[in-house]
Nucleic acid binder design. Structure first.
Lengths: 330, 330
DNA sequence: TTGTATGCGTTATCAG
DNA sequence: CTGATAACGCATACAA
């Protein structure tokens, strides 16, 4: 690989000058500029971004830590985040935060070592205190998606899970359902907890109670199993509230195999608005989580922080009910 | 951030010594070693990986270029690739290759600039000549997933799309279908072309011909539209061969809306074995593409190349029919 | 066993 | 407008 030195020789100028035309900083005579460009061309010169980063202490890169690669939710997050970063001339380094607090921490450490300019953490495992620590001590800006941290509101991007669950539950109630079972997410998931709480509280406000709460892990398979458990329990229910669309699909399949029709016999409410839900049979009634806007927001907020701009807190994002076929009136 | 200098001062030793304990290279007295460790601890010292990379000319990082973030196929690819890399003590830098040859090239250039030790390219757009160029001229090892390049077989990991399509088509024929429509992928996709060819050739071998070929873009929506176009054409068909599961789901939905039942009236064959296909109604008959093994293979092959080991060519991966509900006999 | 000196490829601060 | 030259943080050959 050709280095700046090679360009110097070929163009007959100093490193300083090459650097100047490279970053067009300072004044350079047109003729020399062109000579330099020609030399670069001839040598197929590509600046070494490591050396540059070492010198400038900035990598033009943002780090994104996700807690999974699976599912439309994360796909959208990653895509939009990478697009937004690219549009701002930055690159995005995506790391898997894995299944535990430790692996999330490792991902962050590794990003810090790599000197990314800022980090966006979609957290599922990190407790609030730990996040506070990080927000305080990390040498670079950190934006947290998916959890509110007291005192750092302007660095948190999150979705009003609780309210969305309320809306969903109210919708189910408005359709006459009173015996509603629930398939919730892993108990380590803050989202899942809030969705469940919103569900329970709404029922309680109507002096009702869930007729059975089963736990899944956000994969279809777990929704399928949970629903089979529910069926085996012989509880009577007319609707299921699920913590995501994948599990809803699994549940619908289980109901189907049990000879129950959705929504004729049982209604199923999803969560996340997975694009697939538009095409399943029945199509999924669910709540849209504006994950793409959240991704964009997170990146933009991180960039502001990096540029030392003023930042103001970003309102909680809220959901929309997507009413399709899987829920019907009782 | 503390640097090696700070550690030197606190521990009362030279940079060389700190460096030695850091990489445990060379002999260091136990006492000094511990002093250094303590100093590092006290300062929360994290080595600057950029500086290290600049000095050693190796980043312990592999680059992966994918052509999309959406869909189970790529999720599995990314996850397994990152796991395999992690298991080998390397990190994985994932970049979006986007929708064109240019963006794929940019992603590669950017990875090269970042001095990753090797690149895995899942290509959808790069023509064979361009790949040859890259394989010849890139300063670091390149592994290509998804396309065979003549003369570089040992650096290509690919799936026998053609054969899998043949198997699928034979299966359809064995069920008595003779009027088979097709929803294929974008014409820029090599995979898609091979699948289509396998389909056509198999029909031809039976002196048959597809009764209509429609084009989609791998998203469900496009399968839905294509199927509606197919229906509008009033062609008579008893089965549809689709180039991926998402489009199959879209097509099934379109058929459903048209009052046609799958598989009773029309059979639909998918491709890729998306995990969702196990739970859709009807569940999807499809072909399993061992994308995870391919990902692992690609990473391992790249590592061998980087370590200067001998490499041998890896056989084409082949698929398995996953027979579920969406195809029935005529 | 430890320290010194040099280089990795840039940027940036000076003079000129 | 241009050229030396000192950082940037670390690894490493060579001395001691």
């Amino acid at each position: 690989m050709a280095t700046i030195k090679d360009v110097c020789k070929l163009a007959g100028v100093s490193k300083a000058t090459v650097s100047r035309v490279l970053n067009n900083t300072g004044q350079v005579k047109k003729a020399t500029t062109e000579a330099v460009y020609q030399a670069m061309e001839a040598l197929d010169y590509k600046p070494n971004s490591l050396a540059r980063a070492l010198a400038t202490n900035t990598t033009n890169t943002l780090g994104l830590v996700v807690s999974a690669f699976e599912g439309a939710h994360f796909s959208s997050l990653m895509r939009r985040a990478s697009e937004t970063a690219a549009a701002a001339g930055r690159q995005l380094l995506i790391m898997n935060g894995g299944h535990s607090r430790e692996t999330e921490q490792q991902a962050i450490d590794s990003l810090v070592e790599r000197k990314v300019d800022g980090i966006i953490l979609y957290t599922r495992k990190m407790p609030e205190d730990a996040l506070k620590q990080l927000l305080r001590n990390l040498p670079i800006p950190l934006i947290v998606i998916n959890q509110q941290v007291e005192g750092f509101e302007e660095r948190c991007i999150s979705f009003n899970q609780y309210q969305a669950a309320q809306q969903a539950t109210e919708f189910l109630l408005s359709k006459g359902h009173k015996d509603i079972a629930c398939i919730t997410g892993p108990d380590s998931s803050a989202n899942s907890g809030l969705r469940l709480q919103g569900f329970k509280d709404t029922l309680a406000a109507h002096r009702l109670q869930s007729c059975g709460i089963y736990r899944g892990d956000y994969f279809s398979q777990s929704g399928y199993r949970a629903c089979n458990d529910l069926l085996a329990s012989k509880l009577s229910f007319s609707a299921i509230f699920t913590a995501n669309d994948n599990m809803a699909m699994g549940a619908i399949r289980a109901l189907h195999e049990a000879g129950l029709r959705v929504p004729h016999d049982i209604s199923v409410f999803g969560f996340d608005n997975d694009p697939a839900g538009e095409f399943t049979i029945p199509s999924l009634t669910t709540v849209m989580v504006p994950i793409e806007e959240m991704a964009r927001s997170a990146i933009e907020q991180a960039l502001r922080l990096i540029d030392g701009q003023e930042i103001s807190t970003i309102a909680l994002f809220s959901g929309n009910l997507i009413i399709r076929e899987s829920v019907d009136h009782l």
